[in-house]
Design a protein around this nucleic acid. Structure first.
Lengths: 190, 190
DNA sequence: TGAGTTATACCGATCGTTCGGTAATAGTCA
DNA sequence: TGACTATTACCGAACGATCGGTATAACTCA
C-alpha cells in the first residue's frame, strides 16, 4: 500500500495533547501543533480533516480511553481497595508529570465553545471517574452516599491542586495531594 | 478638563474581567472585549495603551484589590473566626456568581505566556490568601502547621470545585464546597 | 505503478494594533 | 453671558501579521 506515517497515531495524540494541556484550545495554534508533532499544517489536515476541533476532540477521546485503561480498570480490579487507590495515584503522577502538566478537562472547558463539542465528553469523563472511585470505597465498606461525596472531593482536589501548583510555580501541592489521596478516600476504613 | 468617560473605570474592569474569566487570555479577542465594554477597539487602546496585556494585567490587579478588601480584610477582622470564615464564603459566593463564573487565577495562568506578566501577581494573590486563612485558624487555636495545610486545602478545593462545576455544567459542587468550607477549616475547633 | 503521505504555496478572515480625526467637557477671557 | 482654546474620550478605517483552512504538486514505498 502507501507510505508509512512518520509519526504513529499514539505519538501524535501525545504531542497534540501536550500542546492543548499547556495553552488550551484557543491558545493552541496550528503552527504550535505543527511544530510539536513535526508535521506540516497540510499533513495535520490529512490526519484530521476536521481541523483543530477534531484534533482537540480526538485528544479528549484518547484521554478518556487512557482513563479507562489506566485508572478505571485498576480501580475495578480485585486487589485491596487501598492498593487500587495507590495504583491510581501512581498512574496520575505519571500522567500529570508529577504536577507539571495541566489537566485537559480544565483546559478544554472554556466558555468560548459554550455547549460545544467538548462539554459532553468532559462531563462523561468526570462522571465515570467518580462512579469508579465511589465503587472502590463502597467495596471498602464506606457508606454509599459518603463514598460519592469523597469521590467528588478527590476529583475536585486533583483539579484544584493542579491549578494551584501551576499558579504557584511548584509541583509540591500536587505531590502532597497524591500522597494524601488514599487516606482522603479511605480515611476511616483503613 | 476633558470629556467624561462613558464607562467608569470600575464598570470597565468588571466587564473586562467577565470576558477574561469566561474564555481566558488567548480566548479573549479585542472584538469581544469591545462588545462587552461598549467601547470600540480604538477607545480601549485609549484607556489601555498597553493593549490586551495591560487590560488583563489591570483586571488581575483589581482582583487583588478586591480580594484585599472583601476577603483579607474581613478575615483579619475581630469577630469570631467562624463568623469571619462565613463572611468570606458569602463574599466568594457573590464573586463567583454562585459558581457560574470561573476564577481569573486559573484562566490567566496558561503556559503560553510562560513566566509572563501574570504569574507573579497570581502567585502573590494565592500566597496572601493562604496566609490570611492560616492566621484565622491560628486565632481559633489550630496548630500553625496544620492551619497552613487546611488553608491550602481550602484554596485548592475552591479552585477544584470551580473547575468541576464548569465541567459538569452545574454549580452544585461549588455551592456544596462553600457550605462545607467553615467546617473544613475550623473542623475540630468549633 | 499508484495509493498514501508530506510539502509548497496560497486563500479569506480575523487577530492585535495604530493613526487621523471627531465629539464632548472644562477653563479662559471678552 | 458666549466665543475660543485646551484637554480628554471616542471612533472609523486601515495596518501588518497570523489565524485556521485548502488547493495541488512532490515524494515514498508496498
Amino acid at each position: 500500500m502507501g507510505r508509512k506515517a512518520s509519526v504513529d497515531d499514539e505519538q501524535l495524540m501525545d504531542r497534540l495533547s501536550c500542546v492543548f494541556r499547556d495553552v488550551g484550545y484557543e491558545g493552541a495554534t496550528l503552527a504550535m501543533l505543527s511544530e510539536a508533532t513535526g508535521l506540516k499544517k497540510a499533513s495535520l489536515y490529512h490526519r484530521f480533516p476536521g481541523g483543530k476541533e477534531q484534533m482537540a476532540r480526538e485528544v479528549l477521546d484518547s484521554a478518556g480511553v487512557w482513563l479507562e485503561e489506566h485508572i478505571l480498570a485498576p480501580l475495578k480490579g480485585d486487589g485491596a481497595p487501598a492498593d487500587r487507590v495507590k495504583e491510581m495515584a501512581r498512574q496520575l503522577d505519571a500522567f500529570y508529570s508529577g504536577g507539571k502538566q495541566a489537566c485537559l478537562l480544565n483546559m478544554l472547558s472554556s466558555a468560548r465553545i459554550h455547549e460545544g463539542p467538548f462539554t459532553k465528553a468532559i462531563k462523561q469523563i468526570f462522571e465515570a471517574w467518580i462512579e469508579a472511585l465511589a465503587a472502590v470505597m463502597a467495596d471498602a465498606g464506606v457508606d454509599k452516599r459518603e463514598a460519592r461525596n469523597r469521590a467528588e472531593r478527590g476529583v475536585i482536589m486533583l483539579q484544584g491542586s493542579l491549578v494551584f501548583s501551576r499558579g504557584m510555580g511548584t509541583t509540591r501541592p500536587f505531590r502532597e495531594f497524591l500522597k494524601s489521596l488514599p487516606n482522603e478516600l479511605l480515611g476511616g476504613e483503613l
